[in-house]
Design a protein around this nucleic acid. Sequence first.
DNA 1: CAAGAAACATACACTCTGCATGTAATCTGA
DNA 2: TCAGATTACATGCAGAGTGTATGTTTCTTG
Lengths: 210, 210
Amino acid sequence: MQQDPPRRSNRERSQSTREKLIAAARRLFIDKTYAETGTPEIVAAAGLTRGALYHHFADKQALFQAVVEREAQAVAAEIERRADTLHDPLEALIEGGNAFLAAMAAPGRTRLLLLDGPAVLGRAAMDEIDNRHGNRTLREGLAAAIETGTIRPLPLEPLTVLLAAVYDRAALAQETGADPQDYRRTIAGMIESLGAAAGLSRRAPRPARR
Amino acid sequence: MQQDPPRRSNRERSQSTREKLIAAARRLFIDKTYAETGTPEIVAAAGLTRGALYHHFADKQALFQAVVEREAQAVAAEIERRADTLHDPLEALIEGGNAFLAAMAAPGRTRLLLLDGPAVLGRAAMDEIDNRHGNRTLREGLAAAIETGTIRPLPLEPLTVLLAAVYDRAALAQETGADPQDYRRTIAGMIESLGAAAGLSRRAPRPARR
DNA sequence: CAAGAAACATACACTCTGCATGTAATCTGA
DNA sequence: TCAGATTACATGCAGAGTGTATGTTTCTTG
């Protein structure tokens, strides 16, 4: 009547408990806030003790960082899944943005990546995470669009950061019940304006696509 | 050798201690973080006790909200001080934006208004504060620019929110050592693009001003 | 000036975090 | 294969912080 422990390797054990901790923490960090979630609650939900937590993570913040890192990676993966079949650079920008907004609609992602993340880990740490996962495709897309003269030539780094901020804000807005289409159209208008203005400093504006 | 208490009215007393609490809290919330600052530390810096704090404020968060509210008001005041002498709507937008960035350069403001504020009080509460103090001038400026055909007609509310996000992000960037001129020029380029694109859907683009 | 209220101080109960210590499971090498 | 070392985890403890209940002083009011 006593099932003995299934003799797992140490690597398996660690991997498994880390997984449980991250999963339990993620759910709680999403349901409540980072500040409102205590480590006793997390380990209880994971079926472990605080000893396990502090063995695998330096502190509560390190666990949070692991959760955030995963979430950023997941968002980036969802975007790149749709970003393959892309032709026109301007259309690629718009479509990539829509994919981002769709990915950020998953419950709790805005809280993790846009609210608690910057506050707890700091803007610098979030920038580092974003540059490692997300923003790269955006930056490359903008670079391509500038190269081909599709949009107005502006400093790449600021443009990337600022446009990312626009999308972040739209992700937050669409969570508070604002009309998503309204925001998507507005962003599209802003980007298309950058395209139309390219004609002023380079050549004639491209004809409308449809 | 004993100077007796100067017989102040109750309103004066309350006003005074509230002031002390907010000032002390502000400094600490700026030097460290909201989470890292304890109420014992705050009241010690203010020369009071925790009893006074919890008499005037519901909890630590309410004190923080008071600090944030003041800061938002201060930023709005600094902007409107420069926003009086404005003629051309597009120039008004650019100049107002520069005034915002200058105001946000005051140490700690980004942390209060852009990092801890949203995380602690929530996006909805920050929106409410922003709409009461800041964003109003931006929204009105954009409305005027759209009315006169200076910039492309886009949904006002989303455009206001997204442009505010752009400025917020620029304020954060200029704090991490990024070249401020680089960001200002990029934002100016984005807004001017909205202006140039206005000609596509309305009438001929306005001539350059200088 | 006495009764009440407001402003503040003190004391307490509770919770959380991080670490130190203890124990069981796994790994290593002779 | 087995004893020692190492890793994975549990338990216990000290410090600190939050919110509230209660006590004390100062002001207000009829």
